[in-house]
Design a protein around this nucleic acid. Structure first.
Lengths: 82, 82
DNA sequence: TTACCTATGTTTAGTAA
DNA sequence: ATTACTAAACATAGGTA
């Protein structure tokens, strides 16, 4: 184990990431956090109901909702993957 | 200005907040961050497209999307406030 | 209500395995 | 693809005004 420097988290520019590998890792991390924050926390803490629809960088459709019964997003949108 | 203690952020339990005033403030803060994170950052950094639909604790409908042209959520859902 | 403060809790970019 | 690590960046609950 070469001791790595461990420079911590750099500040990033708000623009599309160039490096595709980093982009995919970042997308996975942030998507996870987004869903957890949105679904688990905002819903539980505040009694909100949330639906999120995402097209990933590669065009994949991801969706989630915490709506108990108010309406059925998937049905009403007739969601299909591309 | 009485010098306040500034105790910082306490850890909270993951359950519906009791205090309604705190709940509303927290909802506003988190909703803002959620939208900014979801829209501004995930979209810009990773080229994702996102739509979010939220019913607030008081039942108000809030929605946003960063979808350029893929589809029109509002139209397809025929969204109306309650 | 809104806005600011602040210490602390949480996320995360880059890197490596 | 995933996972772990680290330290800095960031979010945020409660308080104050």
């Amino acid at each position: 184990m070469t001791p790595n420097k461990g420079n911590g988290r750099p500040k990033i520019k708000m623009e599309k990431m160039e490096n595709e590998s980093n982009l995919n890792v970042t997308f996975a991390k942030r998507r996870r956090t987004l869903f957890q924050k949105a679904a688990s926390e905002l819903c539980i803490l505040c009694g909100a109901e949330i639906a999120i629809i995402v097209f990933s960088p590669s065009g994949m459709l991801i969706h989630m909702w915490t709506l108990p019964a108010r309406f059925d997003i998937a049905t009403r949108l007739d969601i299909k993957s591309r």
